[in-house]
Structure formats: C-alpha cells, structure tokens
Design a protein around this nucleic acid. Structure first.
Lengths: 189, 189
DNA sequence: AAATTCAACTAACAATCGTTAGTTTACTAT
DNA sequence: ATAGTAAACTAACGATTGTTAGTTGAATTT
C-alpha cells in the first residue's frame, strides 16, 4: 500500500493546472514539468490526456448525482432538501476545490462515451432539482415565482463556489454552512 | 459605411466558437471555416488570435465597469443600486449572449497589457459592489449576514446568466427583469 | 481608362502538440 | 545473488498550431 499513488498525483496536479488555464491550454509537458518529470513518463501511469480529464470529472459528477437521488427520496421537506443540496455542494467544493473547474468548463473535451454519460448525469441532476423546487411551490413551502429562475439562481451560485472558496478567509466551510442557505433561501432584505 | 464589417463577423463568430469549446480549443482554421474562407485570409482583418479575444472581452468589461461607477454615485438606495446592477447584467447578457463566455472563462489568455487592464477592472467592479452591499448593511437596508457570501451569491448568479439565457423560453429579458431581483433579494421561502 | 485598394487565395514556415518506442535505473521479491 | 517490476529517461513521430509571404481577381477611386 503506497502512501501516494503516482496516478493520483498526476490527476490532482492536472486539475490544478486545468483550473488555471483550461484543459486545452495545458500541455502534457506542463503537467510533467509540475511533477518534475518528462512528458513521456506520464504514460507509464495514464493512457491519454483525456483519461486524466475523465478521472477528474466523472467521479465527482457521480457523487453529485448519486447523492441528490437519495436527497430526493428522503422524507425531508422541500426546503430541507434544497438545504441538503446546498450542503452537498459545499462539501464537494471543500473536498475538491480544483477539480470543479473542469467539471464546469472542460467537460466538453471528454471522450465521447464519457461525455454522453456526463451529460446524462447533468440532465438528471437538474431534473431532480427542478422536481424538488416545483413540489415546494405546489406545497406552498416556496414562493410562487418562476421556477426556472429559482433553479438557475441557486444552481449558479453553488456551482461557482469553487471560484471563491479559499480566496478569502470568509469562505470557510463553517461560514458557508451557516450563511449560504440563509442568503439563498431567505434573501438579503 | 458598410452594412456588416468583416472584422465584426470574425469577432462574433469567434465568440460563438469560444463559448462552445473555449478559446484554446478553437483554431484559426475553425474560425475561418465557419466564415467559409481560409485561415490566412483572417489576417487581412485582424492581427492575431489574441486580438480577437481582446475585442470580445475588453469592450464588455469596460461597459460593466463604467456603468457600475455611475450606479454607485447615483442617489438610489443600496437595494435599488443592487437592482440596477442586476439589470445591468441582464441587459449585457441579452445583448452579448456569446461574448460573456470568454469574459468568464478565457480572460487569462489575453495579451499581457490587456490582461492586467481586465483584472484591474474586475477588481474595481467587485470593490464597488462590495461597498454598495456593506453600506446597505450599515444603513439597515440589508440583513447583517456575511457580506462576502452575499456578494459571491449575487455575482455568481448574474455572471452565469449567459449559460441559461436562450436555453429556455422562461429566460426572456422580461421574465428575468421581473423575477431575478425578487429571488436574489427577497429569497424564495 | 488607369491606378489603387480590398479581401480572398496558395504555399509554406517554425514551433508545439499528444503520443509511441525502446532503454535505463532503482527498488522489491524470490 | 537473481529475476522481475515500476517508473523514470532519450529520441522521435506525424499532425496540427498560429502566422507570414507573395499572389490574384474584383471592386472602388481617380
């Protein structure tokens, strides 16, 4: 049992570089240099550049999808379910602050099979969230505003968290936990 | 006076392609093909690929910056100022639905001088927004929640509007105008 | 009618891209 | 000690990158 797997090193360094410049602007030589090895040596551990992207993106996408499924079928109220989704995004952001950049911006460069798998998960994710919000409106828990605007507004915020987390000390997991739900659900006025 | 300037064609086609795949993944040959000419012909109109990016990004960044300056010094309440900022983003999104992708994701590939100009504007923009929110809290117009979380939450949403606008009929300028401020300011519960 | 400009073209450039092949080195298990 | 393996290396590949040079034909100006 190794302490650090080399493949893991490659993936996490790549995630960091992809966050800075985007997948396409990062070369295999960039990744190698960050690890202080030569580009060709990377291929002892990974099959291709696209495989690295897949390893960054797909696992996290699955975590989102699998978790929101269990949130939907739980017995919580709609508001509580939305709070759970917000918390899910905080947790994943704290755990993978770099990888989320590729999830948001580089997914279109996945190999074909993984791309359609990813898009299917993304669609299911939004569908589930949409059902939660609409049920909340029907049940009178949520104001009767345009549901698509509500969905867009909450998802945009929690999906972009990775851009802010770590940049200011205000963005600790604790601060977010106690403030973000309030701001998103109850507003600021 | 020409009806359509060829340079404008190049810039707007490029913005569309950059939105789909990101600046680095789009080649000059891609841009040329979309215009049904050869890549070398592009250079009769533009100096470099980076110049195209600059033309997409800098003008809009200036529009944001110049407008938020006048919003700050206006005599509106803090809440009204925030509503004006939201409206500003809706207006610019409706006018430039493609260009905003590069503004969000490709700015790091600007040439050095334009990059630092862009970053300076972006910083000023956030500073102004931060002052508006903090004054609103001090004046009691805005709840005393963590101001950075408020700023992040509103900016994330209105900056990502370009990803949703046009995808659903719900996202007309009118719907956004009447719903987005409500959702962001007054919450959904 | 002649001269100039505009905007396309063909051809090619050096640099860089992702990747492969074959080799070397150092550690681990027998 | 020996054999095997993991992980680095050098060298190079064909393809593609942004870009330049020089040319051509059509439109515009003189």
């Amino acid at each position: 049992m190794k302490i650090t797997d080399r493949k893991t090193d490659i993936v996490s360094i790549s995630a960091k570089l992809f966050k800075e410049k985007g997948y396409s602007a990062v070369t295999m030589r960039d990744i190698a240099q960050a690890l202080e090895i030569k580009a060709a040596s990377l291929y002892n551990h990974i099959k291709s550049k696209q495989e690295i992207l897949g390893l960054i993106v797909v696992g996290i996408a699955e975590e989102y999808t699998f978790t929101i499924r269990t949130i939907e079928i739980s017995e919580a109220t709609s508001i509580q379910k939305i709070e759970n989704v917000i918390q899910l995004h905080i947790d994943i952001t704290v755990k993978n602050p770099d990888a989320l950049a590729s999830l948001n911006n580089d997914w279109m460069h996945l190999p074909k099979a993984e791309l359609s798998y990813f898009l299917q998960m993304r669609e299911e994710y939004e569908d589930i969230f949409r059902r939660i919000v609409k049920k909340g409106i029907v049940d009178g828990e949520i104001k009767n505003l345009n549901s698509e605007v509500i969905i867009f507004s909450i998802l945009s915020t929690i999906r972009t968290l990775y851009l802010w987390y770590g940049k200011k000390k205000e963005f600790s997991a604790a601060t977010l936990k106690s403030n973000l739900s309030k701001v998103l659900l109850e507003g600021i006025v």
